[in-house]
Design a protein around this nucleic acid. Structure first.
Lengths: 296, 296
DNA sequence: GTTTGTTATTTTATCTACAATAGACAGTTT
DNA sequence: AAACTGTCTATTGTAGATAAAATAACAAAC
């Protein structure tokens, strides 16, 4: 098989939930833009909807025949792109599994394990190499540099440099900048989460990402924004396999975010720097605590 | 054809210059390490050397028969890896040619133009994307963000942040750190270049790269060191197609480097910061001057 | 004990092929 | 004539194949 039709399957599933409420369907073009796919794919979706007798479709008349059933959906496993599958697989190996620094990474073996061609694995590794966790020996294997204490320290050093600058930049934004609105919204979300922290603390990771990204965006420097990808992926996977004390840890972080937000609103550089440093320090601590000590 | 034997050809050429002076040859293993290739390749090289009757080779007795001639070498075009060819081609297009920001980049067309398969082009683009000049639309083309004034400003902003930190770190290195020796050596090279600036100014680009890399290395932060790759590639190609005033510009830069080196040696933070800022400011100016104004 | 000859195996770098998807154009409907 | 659809073409994502290069093993030679 050449290309998987995951785009189609994923869009089909999203389309089912989209039309569940509606009684008629928009034009092909319109559907395409709301699902983020091309007309070709939209037509494939419509064809299948018709085949399953969920809609009737004749040229521009498309009417709902019945509500979508759970069985109409494609299974979730079939909707993730190959790149996502490889990423999850790989991250599990190096973060969760006991992967030693210095270990060799073998494209062919990885591909066989995951059940894909080597091309996709190669491309993933190339993309992933910018995160500084692996390194290529040309004409030979990749070397795992490992999720070590050093890595975490280097990562947080840059993070702190960038975030302090972004935060200062944010505080200096003109009063009518839309980011202030976003910040208010963000504050509301935080308060809401704090009020129901016992049931909501698991969602913190996503909120955390959105909040910091908002701050970094104000820098309007592509390198700062891009760097945040590394933070995101590290924290995302890291927390997924390190849930010790997460309720307490997240509650603490939400409060720090609120302090940080309040400081931003004062627009006082010193206050912003203080709150920012405070939060970054505890974020670093949490990260370091969960890393095994280095082999000296 | 699958893989080009550029590794062999390049190593063969390097081997020729290596043995030109010597009368006997070291062991296969030794030769392999000094050329940076495996024994398989070394043996292929020896076989060819024998075939051309440059050496006699019988088991462990390898003797020179004649000095290598220019015609023995493989042509230089055949020794660059595909990745290098693609890089040069691509950079010429986007830096030298009038490539408009927003332009679409087509893998297939690029591959056809360069005369390679699409896989290599794809991999190049993925690797290159970390430089922030292009961006992928999944399932569709790449978009050229362009070598604009904004790009240069964002790039230099990060560069300044990193270099100031690295320079401060360098000044704080213990007195017996090997970097101080390297710095002395670097100073000598600069003085030498300055003394013969009229004939040597073209070599500045390489010296510049080595000097700043030395400073950055002291940070021992992989993200800072990796980021310098971006600077390197941008300046490398940029100056290759923008030679206006380069003699004067380079002479000035060499002097600034010498001031910078002197400041580092005083180990006085304020002096270091001053010299560093001074140099970075003029580097930014030069870069900005040679960029066409942005289309607002 | 190091180096080589020999041979085999494994892995990478690269090309080609093909299904999925995007996108363009012309024709059709309202 | 504007919006929509039918049809067609071009390009991307991925698998599989192949030559170059790396790696390994081990006996024989020095």
């Amino acid at each position: 098989m050449a290309k998987q039709n995951t785009v189609f399957k994923d869009a089909f599933n999203r389309c089912l939930t989209l039309i569940a409420a509606a009684e008629a369907l928009p034009s092909e073009l319109e559907l395409g833009t709301s699902l983020g796919v091309s007309r070709t794919t939209v037509r494939a979706i419509l064809a299948r909807l018709k085949e399953l007798e969920i809609i009737s479709w004749d040229k521009r008349t498309k009417a709902m025949l019945r509500a979508p059933q759970p069985t109409d959906f494609f299974p979730a496993e079939e909707t993730s792109s190959l790149a996502e599958i490889i990423e999850r697989n790989f991250m599990r190996r190096i973060l969760a599994g006991g992967a030693e620094p210095g270990m060799q990474i073998n494209e062919l073996e990885l591909a066989r394990d995951i059940g894909t061609g080597t091309t996709s694995v190669r491309e993933f590794l190339i993309r992933f190499s910018r995160f500084g966790l692996i390194e290529k020996r040309p004409n030979s294997h990749w070397v795992l540099k490992g999720f070590t204490r050093d890595f975490a320290l280097e990562l947080t050093e840059i993070r702190e440099m960038f975030e302090l600058r972004s935060a200062a930049g944010f505080a200096a934004l003109p009063g009518d900048h839309p980011a202030w609105r976003d910040l208010d919204e963000m504050e509301a979300l935080h308060r809401e989460m704090l009020a129901n922290i016992d049931s909501r603390y698991r969602d913190f990771s996503e909120l955390d990402e959105r909040f910091h990204l908002l701050v970094h965006r104000s820098s309007s420097n592509r390198f700062i924004i891009d760097f945040y990808d590394i933070i995101t992926i590290v924290f995302h996977y890291h927390y997924q396999w390190n849930k010790a004390n997460d309720r307490q840890r997240n509650a603490r972080a939400v409060e720090e975010h609120l302090d940080y937000i309040a400081a931003l609103k004062t627009r006082d550089p010193a206050a912003v720097e203080h709150a920012c440093r405070q939060h970054l320090r505890s974020a670093r601590e949490t990260l370091l605590q969960s890393i095994q000590q280095p082999e000296t």
